[in-house]
Amino acid sequence: MSDEHETEFESPFNAMPVVVVILFLIMAGIELTLTAAEAGLVGGPEAIGWRLGLVRDWGFSGDLFDAMLAQGYWAPEHLARFVTYPFIHLSFTHALIAIVLMLALGKLAAEVMGPFAMVFLFVMSGIGGALVYALLLDDPVWLVGAYPSVYGLIGGYSFLMWRRLGATGGQQMQAFSLIAMLMGLQLVWSLFSSVGYGWVAEFSGFVCGFFLSFLCAPGEWARILRKMRQR
């Protein structure tokens, strides 16, 4: 009877890898604090500007990157923006969608590739997305939000599907159906409103996640070493 009672009220986070829960708590904690501040529940009148302040202090700026590149001086506080910008969002809805995707895809990546590989994909895809955004575009719009990192997890998911379909003789192009659908939705949405160039960072994050999975997916590194030795 006691076991049934404990199972009935088991926390849904028990099924989540620890690293995914930690990322969730950081992202959700920041967003809930900012949302509460904008609602006047914490921080007083000046708290309304907290979100804008975080974007300015921890968001990623292509202009700042260009300035560092031109001067040849890589200020640590600005380099940190490559890692911090995914944890800042423009609104509650903006954060909610990113968090839901991170939970679903992060759980899959952590369970199949391992927790450290999942964090590696998340962080490096965010860095890669921001780097391409800064190098390809001359866009003054600041980059914030976990979407490039989440798209990196989609890249990891697509890699796993691509490898599985290849092993079973399936059509490997089907592995890219999710990213094709998401990019298609971006295109349709752009017909009705201005979506900006954030999709460049997001797609770049996907590409980073896919190719980094050659190192992160179980057995891939050993397979690469084996092929190198055969040569």
Results as ranks from 00 to 15, higher is better:
G169I: 09
S204C: 04
A180G: 04
A175I: 10
L191N: 13
F192R: 07
M181D: 05
M173P: 02
Q171L: 13
V200Y: 06
W189M: 13
G198E: 02
L191Q: 15
V195M: 11
V195Y: 07
G205N: 04
Y197C: 03
Q172F: 09
Y197A: 08
G184I: 04
Q172G: 05
Q171R: 15
F176N: 04
A201H: 01
G169W: 11
E202S: 08
W189T: 12
A201F: 04
F192C: 02
A180R: 02
G196H: 07
S190K: 06
L187M: 13
Q174I: 13
S194P: 00
T168Q: 15
A180T: 11
L191E: 11
M173L: 14
Q172R: 15
W199V: 10
Q186D: 08
S177Q: 07
M183A: 15
V188C: 06
W189A: 15
G169F: 10
G170A: 09
G196L: 05
G196T: 07
G170S: 10
L182R: 01
V188N: 05
S193R: 10
S204V: 00
L178E: 01
L182I: 08
G198N: 06
I179E: 01
Y197I: 00
M181K: 01
S190A: 14
V188E: 06
V188I: 13
F192H: 12
T168V: 12
G198P: 02
V200R: 03
L178R: 02
G184Q: 05
M173K: 11
G170K: 08
A180L: 11
G184C: 06
S194W: 05
G198H: 04
V200N: 04
G196F: 08
G169R: 08
F203S: 02
I179R: 00
S204H: 04
S177L: 13
F203N: 00
Q171N: 15
Q172C: 07
W199C: 02
V195H: 08
M183R: 03
F192A: 11
L178Y: 06
S177D: 09
S193P: 01
Q172V: 14
Q186T: 08
L182P: 00
G184A: 10
T168R: 15
L185D: 07
A180N: 03
F192T: 08
I179H: 00
T168A: 15
L185W: 13
G205K: 00
L182E: 02
Q171D: 15
W199G: 03
L191C: 13
Q174L: 15
